[in-house]
Nucleic acid binder design. Sequence first.
DNA 1: GGGGAGAGATGCCGC
DNA 2: GCGGCATTTCTCCCC
Lengths: 243, 243
Amino acid sequence: MDSDAVKIRDAIRRNETIAIGCECEVDYSGRAEAHLPVGERLIIIKADKALLVHQPEGNAPINYMKPDTRHSVKLEDGKLLLSSQNTALKEYLDVKMTKIHFVSSHPLKDGQKIQIIGTEKDMSEMIYKNPSLISDDFRPVSMEEQTKYGFIDVFGHDKNNNLMIVECKRYCADLSAVTQLRRYVEKMKEVKGTDAIKGVIAAPKITSNAGQMAKDWGFDFVAVEPPKYRERFNKDQKTLGNF
Amino acid sequence: MDSDAVKIRDAIRRNETIAIGCECEVDYSGRAEAHLPVGERLIIIKADKALLVHQPEGNAPINYMKPDTRHSVKLEDGKLLLSSQNTALKEYLDVKMTKIHFVSSHPLKDGQKIQIIGTEKDMSEMIYKNPSLISDDFRPVSMEEQTKYGFIDVFGHDKNNNLMIVECKRYCADLSAVTQLRRYVEKMKEVKGTDAIKGVIAAPKITSNAGQMAKDWGFDFVAVEPPKYRERFNKDQKTLGNF
DNA sequence: GGGGAGAGATGCCGC
DNA sequence: GCGGCATTTCTCCCC
């Protein structure tokens, strides 16, 4: 464990990315206070000094520290104590390791950005280019527009020049989606001095309560799927591939 | 790389937790479509068959698969191809590794739950027990109550028997916090058939726009900090800082 | 840096 | 499983 301490300390100094398999106990103090009793976990320290504590199950880290945290390593009573401090954020985390299974590290470099298709923005774009997805007479004017009343996904009007505000959700629309739309519509009515403004929720589906609330407020719900360009894995649905 | 493939395959079969430092390229298809060009990353496969792809910088994983995913490993053109499929969720992910820096694994076990203090629920509890934090005449009746109008943090009345609904936020209250409160108050007014219902936002602070909206809707904002019982840890660190 | 909103959000709890 | 909602949310974008 002595040599592990040296190894970890050196790897931190060289800004390597480190993976430690160990038995440990974790204490956190910062935005909240947390204690995690002894168990076996994977500790990760990244090149940017972010720290993650992962249990052997589950998606999300159980404990973590943000980038630019200062880490120090020392031995105490035959245990390896990793002490992490982010004084700027007033966050502190201690990992007390009672057994170490492996310590691996390497100077990783990666400047690549991920490319994602099928976001809400892609959905807005699809609707903007194919307004009939909303209704036969929808005439879009702008999309993803930051107005002072809010961030409106797709904005336009119908053939009678009634304004239309479309709020997109890539998954099931919920109550907050409807209240969000309501906020835009209300503000717009106030600013334009008219009640002739139509609110539309565009999403694959909507929760029952949200659907009721939308109806109560005179909003339309239109079933729209988010676009997917690269269906190379799932070849069943090629209908949207035209976009 | 041949032995790496064997090592990874065996570790997966034995439900070990695996950390791989490598250069790779990643493709994902499922709820969206994503491509991540070649770069150096840390790949993690957990005991429950969750998969994480971490870049050397940043807090969150850049790609991932949920637990209960099926992973297969094979060699192709001198590259190690990790192919992950979650057919139940219709999600698919490919990692094409072009260099391998390290492969570590161990059968980790951990059944511990984290204990957290300072959540919104703790905040509700604190207010319930110390109603003067809201106002001198606040009389709480229930907390964390699931009503059909919504999930009300703290519910009660004042000395004049006007109903009061308190919505807590651990951080800065934003527009959606106010619309959430508004939804409860509106529904409650409708059900009780009275306008004598007071809405209160309890949070450390509130955004300027949310503050204005709260004022417009006749809601009060009360500055309340979430509770933290374990300040000992903080003090320890403070002491260390003197060195 | 604050504010607003999305996310392949995740995770928890209650019905 | 759906629904509602918090999260040590994180992240990005815009002002």
